[in-house]
Simulated scan of single mutants.
Amino acid sequence: MKRDSVIFLCTGNICRSPMGEGLLKHAIAALPDSSPLKTLRVLSAGTFGEDGMRASSNSIIALDKVGVDISRHVAQSITQEMLDGCFALVAMTQAHLDTVRRYFKTMPPHSFTLLSLVPNAAHTDILDPYGYGMNTYIEVRDEIISAMPHLVKFLEKEYK
């Protein structure tokens, strides 16, 4: 099976990981047509979510403010099949990676927290904004945005 996907991972797949998915898709769309990243599938999933849920309204609004539409997002749980086709698993927290290691037999070749790619990041976990106000969602969005150039650079170097 070809490993041709990047999967963003959070808990419920309704806040952080859909934002990561939408922002990476947006970044890849801006790359030249010749970029190998154009062939990547960008997905998101949750460790303990409820399949079929929509993205949280605050996540949709926060991304809409920067011109990214995730209004059609539908939550899904991570599966072994998804992991088998995954080139890079990008988790929002170390606990998400630990959960996958505990419950699944194999990990993708590249598995890391998103903020671990950011030099001098104050922390490696992105706060779960669920239940907080719009300002928290915007802070989370901006933290994910700050990591996007680092993620794109990593993928351009590693994905052939």
Rank of each mutant, 00 (worst) to 15 (best):
H150Q: 06
K157W: 07
K157L: 09
R54H: 07
T106L: 10
V68I: 01
Y137R: 04
D4E: 13
D64A: 11
F104Q: 10
G12E: 07
N58F: 10
A27E: 15
D33T: 12
I60A: 01
K25S: 06
T136V: 15
E139V: 09
F104M: 10
V100M: 08
G67W: 04
H150V: 00
S59A: 15
L127D: 13
T93D: 12
P109D: 15
V74Q: 11
M134T: 07
Y103D: 15
L43I: 03
C86Y: 08
R141W: 01
T124S: 14
S57D: 14
G85A: 11
P108N: 12
L97F: 05
I145D: 03
D142Q: 01
A62S: 12
A75W: 00
F8C: 03
R41M: 09
G12H: 08
S59K: 03
L97S: 07
H123G: 14
D64N: 09
I78S: 06
I78T: 10
H96N: 13
K38P: 02
D125M: 07
A95H: 10
L83A: 10
G12N: 07
M134D: 10
A29V: 08
C10D: 04
Y130M: 10
L83H: 09
E81S: 14
I7R: 02
S146W: 02
L127F: 14
S77R: 12
L115M: 15
F8V: 04
L155A: 06
G52A: 06
E81K: 12
K25V: 00
D125V: 04
R16Y: 06
S116C: 10
H150F: 05
P149V: 02
Q80H: 05
L115T: 12
F87T: 09
S77K: 09
V152P: 02
R16G: 01
I145L: 12
A95E: 14
L23K: 02
V140D: 04
S34D: 11
S35D: 07
H73P: 04
P36E: 06
I14R: 04
M82S: 12
S5C: 13
N58L: 15
G46Y: 03
T106A: 13
S17T: 05
K2E: 13
L114K: 05
D51A: 14
A45L: 05
